[in-house]
Nucleic acid binder design. Structure first.
Lengths: 372, 372
DNA sequence: CTGTTAGCGCGTTCAG
DNA sequence: CTGAACGCGCTAACAG
């Protein structure tokens, strides 16, 4: 027979606490005792699982509220339950693409009761790997990955699927059996915008933002080449200038310097397609500096249709991809995998882009700020 | 006496697994058994805590590697250890401010061995609350909050400190005893840029992006008013136009419409200070549309010095705040609290902003793209 | 230096 | 409908 009444055991090292400073969070045991039931009953009442009399349920819930009780999700996970949290790996945060994508993802995710934790890779393989590892270590239920594809990155993803963690990539077609992916047709988008320039009569068209390195083939650049070839125009090597700052990305500075480089050629291009809108804005700036009339002497087009693209001088012709929609679809796919409602072979989805013609290429374009 | 040899117990419902599909992650028990030691010993070897003979340590580590063993951080946390993860709550992700801030934060955090999980509030109180709750539920070690201040938000933060979670806010001075905060001097920054406009001879100066609602007083607007008053210029109510889209923020559209509104006045301003650079870019666009010469007929200044500000036509005068540095300092403060190396009263830090004069206000400004 | 015991907070399982 | 026992994976505390 035990001589002492068994009360809640505190960590042995600090039997007394500084009173109000660090209130130990209430546990199910606390709630149960105060409600005069056994923990299991409290659990049932709170989770609505199993049966519990109306009277008991109310009493338990009342005590729980009053104690500010919150279930310990970590302990739950330890028992094999889901955390209802998914990890989202983004290339960076500065990009309007990331922002819009996250908006789409969260729209679906929160509605389904999941929490979204975001990490950024900042275009570093190391950071990408450690972020992925952190997500897995924290036992998130699934993973959405929107970083640019690399050899090592793909290997890390494969490793994750081996652990059985559901995974969907966005804008990154990947050859891993269990992985769904969703992307926009960048190749086609580039093809369309370059064809548009050709239709306007341009024969010499430059490309800004060609990245080097061992990454997978840049779809936007390839679309550009294809459009030129299909129109019977050759691909001139010196018309494609690279991005200096970061691989697989291009900044305003890249655009500025790229345009400066192209303008110095003996026969400079009369039109330029920039890999993204940031670079296009830099190119725009350079053209102004050089005193070139846009679009008469120099037509400029970008890609992505970021919000400022409507507000540049002149407004920017660009290609819009359905960003939020990709996010929404990706989230749906992931949830399907997590909840096993959508089993079977990996799904691959490719969405169409849309050419947005503004005054930076076409003087007759109607100038409006509405984003249709 | 037990008749059966006790082996690893699998969940009773699925005694067999689909072989290679969903490899159950190795646990410490698995490692220990394969290494021929008891779990506790394996733990010591892996964590370097306590003593372990060189020979045992090596054997255990080898097995751990070979089994792809990863400690279960959730189980650890359950035993009262830290997760080595902090939560970062950002207002949104589109803003270059967020991006730069996160860069600064992570710089310090990863060096100290912490993982950074990000959540966004998207300027919704509900999302803010649920994100905070999620972080706390997941037992992160500390919290960095950079959302705009609101009544309800502050209450949620107070609740969190009651739970004993270390908390540091950024750009959000807050009156909670245990909370450190760090901010830039927005008031002074606004005061300086408006004084600059006054020195250039402007007498009628507008403000774009005044937000309404119950939020705390907008420091940038107040700095604007103070500069006018100190120069003996009155504050004209109709010179301050609001932001339409979202409270506590302003977009290109707000800037565009604001400028249009101001230009229609009988005696329109000759200079405009926009609450942030996005709004300033919209105003710039409107001024172009109206055929106003910048800065001769209309001077325009912004706030934040976002990257595009150097590439607008003309380049934008603005105020730069030390964003990354705020992030770094905030992270240091938080780590100090988490690791209890920095106890004591709450610290409050206020950093200086810097006026960046470009051609949108001063025709004599030197045009350069270097971001000094 | 290594093994044993116990328990973190919760939910599954089986008995009342 | 409710209660008791057990274990998820890990480590503090205390033996050996």
């Amino acid at each position: 027979m035990k001589p002492v009444k068994r009360t809640r055991k505190y960590p042995s090292k600090k039997t007394t606490q500084p009173a109000e400073t660090k209130q130990r969070p209430a546990t199910l045991v606390d709630v149960a005792r105060l409600a005069g039931v056994v923990p299991m009953t409290a659990s049932r009442a709170i989770n609505g699982s199993g049966y519990a009399s109306e009277e008991v349920r109310e009493r338990v819930l009342k005590v729980a509220r009053q104690l500010h009780y919150r279930p310990n999700v970590l302990a739950r996970q330890l028992k094999g339950q889901r955390l209802n949290a998914v990890g989202i790996l983004l290339p960076d945060i500065a990009n309007p693409f990331s922002s819009e994508l996250l908006r789409g993802i969260k729209e679906v995710l929160v509605k389904a009761g999941y929490t979204a934790f975001v990490a950024t890779a900042d275009r570093s393989i190391d950071q990408e790997r450690s972020a992925l590892q952190a997500f897995v270590d924290h036992r998130i239920d699934g993973l959405l990955v929107a970083t640019r594809g690399t050899q090592l990155g793909d290997e890390a993803l494969r490793e994750i699927t081996r652990r059985g963690v559901p995974l969907v990539t966005i804008g990154r077609p990947v050859k891993i059996p269990a992985v769904d992916w969703i992307t926009a047709d960048h190749w086609r988008g580039a093809y369309d915008v370059v064809s548009h320039l050709i239709q306007l009569g341009h024969k010499r068209i430059g490309f800004i933002g060609l990245s080097e390195g061992p990454d997978r083939s840049p779809r936007r650049y390839e679309g550009y080449c294809a459009a030129l070839r299909d129109a019977g125009l050759g691909v001139v090597a010196e018309y494609a200038v690279g991005s200096v700052v970061a691989p697989a990305f291009a900044t305003e500075q890249d655009g500025y310097e790229g345009m400066m480089t192209l303008a110095k050629l003996k026969r400079p291009p009369t039109a330029v397609f920039a890999r993204n809108d940031f670079a296009a804005i830099g190119a725009l700036r350079a053209a102004h500096t050089l005193g070139l009339k846009i679009p008469q002497q120099m037509a400029i087009a970008g890609f992505d249709d970021i919000p400022v693209a409507t507000y540049t001088v002149p407004p920017l012709t660009t290609v819009r991809q359905p960003i939020a929609e990709q996010g929404r679809e990706a989230a749906k796919l992931l949830i399907g995998r997590i909840e096993k409602t959508q089993p079977g072979k990996a799904k691959h989805i490719c969405m169409d882009c849309r050419l947005i013609v503004r005054e930076s290429t076409d003087p007759k374009a109607v100038h409006t700020h509405e984003r249709v």
